[in-house]
Amino acid sequence: MSIIEQTVDEPIDGLVATPEFEAANEAQQRRRGFLMALPAFAYLILFFAVPLVIVIVYSFATRNRFGGTDLNGWNLESYRGLGDDLVRQILVRSVVLAAITTVICLLIAYPFAYYMSTRRPAVRNLMLVGVMIPFWTNFLVRNYAWYVILGTDGPFSQVTEFVGIGETRLLFTQTAVVMGLVYGFLPFMILPLYAAIERIDGRLLEASRDLYANGFQSFRHVLLPLSMPGVIAGSILVFIPSLGAYVTPEILGGAKTTLLGSYIVTQFLSARNMPFGASLSTVLMIVMLTATLVYFRKGGRTL
């Protein structure tokens, strides 16, 4: 055979393998990995971890008379401010609105995600694209669209007038804020729910029906428990940003509907009470971290 023949190459030289060589090789691999991670690692330490620590330090600092911040003399003053009536009101309102937003998203998204997973692959992909587009669309613009719709004499009001409910003035109300939040975060609920439901083996539902479950029972005892990871992931993904929402309440909400996000911003941009703002941010962050950790503990893998 002419194509493959044994050719006599120049001798190749290696060494007899030793544990030392193996260890040196592994160390070199580790070094290589570390060097690749280093730029991003160093960047995140400097521009993320350090700022994070600064916020926590600030939350224990004191506000001085000139609106500046005195870093000496650590105290819990700004955390005590959380018990303030106004602050409690804002916290409760934020949590309630975020919870309502989450529940509404869940109620809309679950049947949608379920229906989507029953369609033909072609239709399914089309629906997925239909969800992805708003997901990628500029968030500010999407909120602003609701400003246009809900405004005085705007399209929404004209529709309600036309059907006989009469003129509506929803802009600058909590209802408008919830509408904006649902609009903004619904894709965050649909996508993980779809991912969870789509993975479920349809034969399990058939089996439950075969075992005398009616439609609701098979949903309650089979579909829902199996899709729980998606429900939890989606709920976290909607609840957390809703809780810290700033743009939506600023555009669609009014003076009486201040939410946590806006309130924090106010502490920095106008009230100049940075330690208090920092402590509110820290609390928000702890809520977020706890929710995420709970999710991962419960066996969630990706957000």
């Binding site: 190749i12 290696g14 060494l15 007899v16 393998a17 544990p19 193996e22």
Partner: peptide, 18 residues
Amino acid sequence: EFPTEGSLKIFGNEVGTL
């Protein structure tokens, strides 16, 4: 993979660490 220890020759040439 590199052996932890031992000799590996291909046509008489030691290649364990190549």
